[in-house]
Nucleic acid binder design. Structure first.
Lengths: 115, 115
DNA sequence: AGTGTATGTATTGGTGGCCAACATATGCGG
DNA sequence: CCGCATATGTTGGCCACCAATACATACACT
């Protein structure tokens, strides 16, 4: 998978992996990698600014977890607005793949029956 | 569809619309738009440099058509290398959608049955 | 006690690909 | 002869993401 592959779809990925429950940055990277079967390897320089942005937009909320004997970690959680946006991202993804897919793999042409 | 949507997939689109036969620039834009159901509207500033690049790479060949009573137009045609690359782009597209899709819409989890 | 490794958060600079805008030319209908 | 649709092309700019870097701490090992 080329480096730049997630371009334009990063927000959806982040929101999606946070849907089941809160995660911190490192765990988000691991979750994306796992759920993609190892195909997507996000970098910290990619997600931290993105998480920050999503929080500023009100799609995520964060809180520091500092259990004793643990490094401090910041857990991100979906807000209601985030959930709504995630639904939108999923719809956009469907449209996007349909559009590109239709050009890349046009179904069997049936001349004369096109609508 | 956001403006930047085709980023990273442009080459595949161009090769795909040229698969059935040669087309000139303007017709390529129209073909992509038609096959995508109107969702993808490429700009001349997008495709002309791209077509040039693909020709330099040997994936396309071009020839000027100048029928009498017609504006001059440059028809682009797939080369064998272009056809091979198109196959690769299709495979890459499948991988790409599988990866993003798996993160965005993880199938019903079946704990304990994961492979 | 000291060293290394894995975990964890964060910032900075750079790049490349696409778009918006612009420039130009011509066939054709009114 | 004027405007519109068709047609090919160039230039500048933006911005999202990556690579590299920096730093801090828990824990295992010696």
């Amino acid at each position: 998978m080329k480096a730049d592959a997630v371009r334009g779809h990063l927000d959806g990925l982040l929101l999606a992996v946070l849907e089941p429950g809160p995660l911190h940055g490192y765990a988000i990277i691991a979750a994306v990698q796992r759920r993609s079967g190892g195909a997507l390897e996000l970098r910290t320089g990619t997600i931290y600014p993105a998480l920050n942005r999503l929080e500023r937009l009100g799609l995520l909320s964060s809180s520091w977890e500092s259990a004793a004997g643990e490094r401090r970690r910041r857990a991100y959680e979906l807000t209601d607005a985030g959930r709504a946006t995630l639904a939108g991202e999923r719809a956009a993804w469907t449209e996007f793949t349909a559009a590109i897919g239709a050009v890349l793999n046009p179904g069997p042409q049936r001349p004369g029956l096109a609508t």
